[in-house]
Design a protein around this nucleic acid. Structure first.
Lengths: 345, 345
DNA sequence: GTGAAAGCGCTAACAC
DNA sequence: GTGTTAGCGCTTTCAC
């Protein structure tokens, strides 16, 4: 393992000059630059990043917190974030909190110990009061989450509107008994969607029935379960908002086993617009989230914060959601003329 | 940001003693230990990891190379690897090579610059000759890949056997014209499976028809395409080995649009046993890979290599694959009595 | 048991 | 344009 000193010696120059060449600083003559490059080549020299990090107080690494990778929504987020990081010569450390507040706090030490330059929270389990103190060590950016108490950049989607358009669509299809599923973990996403769902119901003169609310539901298996709960009810919903394509797929898959006709016996709407929506029969009506754009923006903002040192300002970047109508809510797959407004702000 | 020096001063002790306390070294009196802990607490002190890394020449971080996160197989691998890393107080950096040999080489510099202690290759695009030199900088472990030229630990699954049992199953169901799909990227996985497929065909007195081999096929959309290719053929295969549940799902989904009866008109077998296999109708027959066990073993071996400094020894850890029979290959979903051997080594 | 001091490899004042 | 030098914050001999 050769060091900058070795290179300097071999080139007959000082460490400073070598360092200047490495970091592309001006004021180095072409001759010496060449000399340095030759020496580096010959020694197979590469700067040691721990030493560099220690000196410049930057690691060029950011951490992203998610509950778990296997959730397709978060896989997609990680995929895009990694590419956005790579484009800026940054590394991405993945931290799975597994919905544990304690694990989250533990991972936040990465910021405190300066192992990462910043943290992107794509989920958070702790109250903001507990997270806030870490801001003294580096920037924290919310991505896909919103927290009113947080004075940091927040890049997210208008989930209230998402819940609203999804529910409004179900109502327009003639449903008046509408079920509702939610992940149940502490998250602004679920809360916001529920708000939108309620608003749509209210505008239609319907009410949110707690008996039709299924909580702690977030994967295929849970979806199957939900179907059985519905099946066992005396009064059943005729449509259900699931908040996730996987839950929707689970419900539909199980319903078909019992020869229910989707959407006639039960209309089902997903969320995320994952690949599975076009595999399940009927295809799943869903709400598309611009994950790629959101992730790209989050990394852009993070990069900027790292270099600006101003971490404690609230900045809002809101991305739009879009309803995608498919067969799981309408018998005829054609999108109808809709009266749903473009925004409900 | 307080340093070890600040703690030492506040406690009225030397840096050495503080360091000993931090690292749980022996020979520190209980009194001083308490003093140090109090000082650390009071200052909110946490050791700086760059400084520590520079000094001990370890970062407690490993990188994992995958083509991309969105592939469910790799999502699962990342998920498990991250947990295995966290259990050992290691961080995981995700590197998406996107099937690019150049990107892969670039990411390998993480090892050279000592930004990571080791690299887990879950895919590799470059010839081993090009990767091998990086071994002088730290351990490299193959996970899910096998390379005969590589003298490093390899944790993988018997893909030859996987291709074999899948194909043998199709043959047992009475198919004699069997199609074959492969991802097509430089990978031992595809090559091994093809070998297994060919061996099964040979044993059954059938031959591998190149016209039924679809290459560069690895997602749902490709699956749909494959269906159309098959549909356009004069002589069509009656069954197809896909090498991926997503491709299988794509084929089945598209076939159903054209009212083909799966498995009667076309039997389809997937690979990986992802959640989608139980959502698609009929459910997809597939080959289960013990990803969790494999990932856990890979991290265990990596951890050991990092601490042993012996990187250049070939070690083989092979995990078994298992056929899971569902409706996409047999009209009757019950698993039949099979004559497929437990191993073909 | 404890402390002084060297040094991991690098960058950036500052001097020339 | 180039070199000297002082640390970044930590661990670890070595001496006491």
């Amino acid at each position: 393992m050769s060091t900058i000193e070795d290179v300097a010696k071999l080139a007959g120059l000082s460490r400073t000059t070598v360092s200047r060449v490495i970091n592309n600083h001006p004021y180095v003559s072409a001759t010496k630059k060449k000399l340095v490059h030759e020496a580096m080549e010959q020694l197979g020299y590469v700067p040691n990043s721990s030493a560099r990090s220690l000196r410049i107080q930057k690691t060029e690494t950011v951490a992203v917190f998610i509950p778990r990778v296997m959730n397709p929504f978060f896989s997609q987020l990680i995929e895009t974030l990694e590419m956005a990081a790579a484009a800026r010569n940054y590394q991405l450390i993945v931290c799975q909190t597994q919905y544990s507040a304690k694990k989250e706090l533990n991972y936040l030490n990465l910021l405190k110990t300066k192992q990462v330059d910043g943290v992107i929270l794509a989920s958070h389990e702790n109250d903001w009061e507990l997270i806030e103190p870490y801001l003294q060590y580096g920037p924290i950016v919310l991505c896909n989450e919103f927290d009113n108490k947080a004075n940091v950049p927040m890049i997210y989607q208008d989930q209230v509107y998402g819940g609203y358009i999804a529910t409004m669509h179900l109502i327009e299809q003639g449903n008046s008994l509408i079920g509702y599923c939610t992940g149940g973990h502490y998250s602004s996403v679920g809360t916001a969607r529920e708000k939108g769902v309620k608003q749509a119901l209210k505008e239609a003169g319907l009410c949110f029935e707690e008996k039709f609310a299924f909580r702690n539901v977030y994967n295929i298996e849970h979806g199957r379960q939900v179907f059985h709960w519905i099946k066992g009810m005396n009064e059943r919903p005729t449509a259900i908002f699931t908040g996730s394509d996987e839950v929707a797929a689970g419900i539909i898959s199980e319903a078909k086993k019992y020869r229910w006709n989707i959407p006639v016996d039960l209309a089902v709407i997903g969320f995320d617009n994952q690949a599975i929506t076009e595999i399940v029969e009927p295809n799943i009506t869903t709400v598309h989230q611009p994950v790629t754009e959101m992730a790209e923006k989050a990394m852009e903002v993070m990069y900027e914060k790292i270099n600006s040192k101003d971490y404690k300002t609230k900045e809002i970047y809101q991305f739009p959601l879009k309803l995608i109508v498919r067969g799981s809510t309408v018998s005829n797959n054609l999108e109808k003329c809709s009266s749903i407004p473009k925004s409900i702000s």
